[in-house]
């Protein structure tokens, strides 16, 4: 559940980024900016998702040194 919620947040970030790029700033070809936004948000989501999923069912427990 938390995973999908987090993914939704990144999706919203992507929408905000796209809207910002398209509605703010001077008109012209913004293709490169969009690609940059896509790759960035995808990467940020990807690494977050990896770390989140990796912690869902830990097989090792934290132990203090004696």
């Amino acid at each position: 559940m938390g995973f999908w919620l987090g993914t939704l947040v990144f999706f919203l970030i992507q929408i905000v980024a796209t809207a910002t790029i398209n509605f703010v700033g001077k008109p012209g070809n913004k293709g490169l900016t969009h690609i940059m936004a896509f790759t960035t948000v995808f990467q940020l989501w990807f690494i977050w998702a990896i770390i989140y999923m990796a912690q869902m069912n830990p097989l090792i427990n934290p132990e203090y040194k004696e």
Binding site: T18, A19, N22, N29, K30, G31, L32, H34, I35
Partner: peptide, 9 residues
């Protein structure tokens, strides 16, 4: 909003 302009980068 959906105009990404990917055609001519």
């Amino acid at each position: 909003l959906l105009d990404f302009g990917f055609q001519n980068i």
